[in-house]
Amino acid sequence: MIALGDSASSTIQISPTSKISIDDWFQADIEIKVNCFSGKINAFFESGDLTRFYHDVIKLNKTLKGKAELLPREDQFKLSLIADNLGHIIVKGHAYEQACYGNCLNFEFEIDQSYLSELIDSLEIHVRI
């Protein structure tokens, strides 16, 4: 499971539910909890999506500048981590019920930079380095 955030307030958990297929796709359950709102979807990813995100998060953690984005091709789920100049990370994105249509949960919350190392550790298990 790939985890981001503080379980007491706002979290995002991505749990792969299938192995990477021969054409490089896999499915994952995504749970989003932002204060009193929550949602769960199942989305498709390509293995390169997580690999790019992993490397971007490592860079963000080292520099605390710029952003790291998880941008699957189908755009059903999007996750952006944006550094501010105070050591905070703004987490924002969206989750559609179906690939790019249906109900949509737009979310945004803030975490401390210390959560990035936990995210990196959880991503490392799922990426092809």
Rank of each mutant, 00 (worst) to 15 (best):
Ala28Thr: 12
Lys65Ser: 11
Phe77Glu: 07
Tyr54Met: 03
Asp24Gly: 09
Ser10Met: 04
Gln27Phe: 04
Met1Lys: 04
Leu60Glu: 09
Ile20Asp: 03
Asp29Leu: 02
Phe44Gly: 11
Thr63Gly: 03
Ile90Ser: 12
Ile2Asp: 00
Glu74Gln: 13
Lys67Asn: 13
Ala99Val: 12
Gln13Arg: 14
Phe37Leu: 13
Leu116Ile: 04
Gly48Met: 10
Asp29Met: 03
Thr11Gln: 09
Glu31Val: 14
His126Phe: 14
Ile2Phe: 00
Gly39Lys: 03
Tyr96Cys: 11
Lys40Val: 13
Phe77Met: 11
Glu46Cys: 09
Asp112Thr: 15
Asp23Met: 06
Ser38Gly: 11
Leu119Met: 10
Ala8Tyr: 07
Phe45Ala: 00
His126Gln: 13
Ile58Val: 14
Leu123Gln: 08
Val91His: 02
Asp29Gly: 00
Glu124Met: 13
Ile89Ala: 01
Phe53Val: 08
Asp75Trp: 08
Tyr115Pro: 01
Tyr101Pro: 03
Leu105Ile: 13
Val34Ser: 13
Asp24Asn: 15
Ile12Val: 15
Val34Arg: 01
Glu31Ala: 12
Asn85Lys: 07
Lys19Gln: 13
Lys67Trp: 05
Ile89Gln: 04
Phe107Trp: 04
Pro16His: 03
Leu70Asp: 00
Asp49Pro: 06
Gly93Glu: 12
Leu71Asn: 14
Glu118Cys: 05
Ala43Trp: 05
Ile12His: 05
Phe107Gln: 05
Leu116Val: 01
Pro16Arg: 00
Ala99Asn: 06
Leu4Ile: 08
Cys36Gln: 10
Ile32Tyr: 06
Met1Ile: 08
Phe26Pro: 08
Gln13Leu: 07
Ser18Lys: 09
Ser15Met: 06
Phe44Arg: 13
Val91Pro: 03
Ala43Met: 04
Thr11Asp: 04
Gln76Tyr: 11
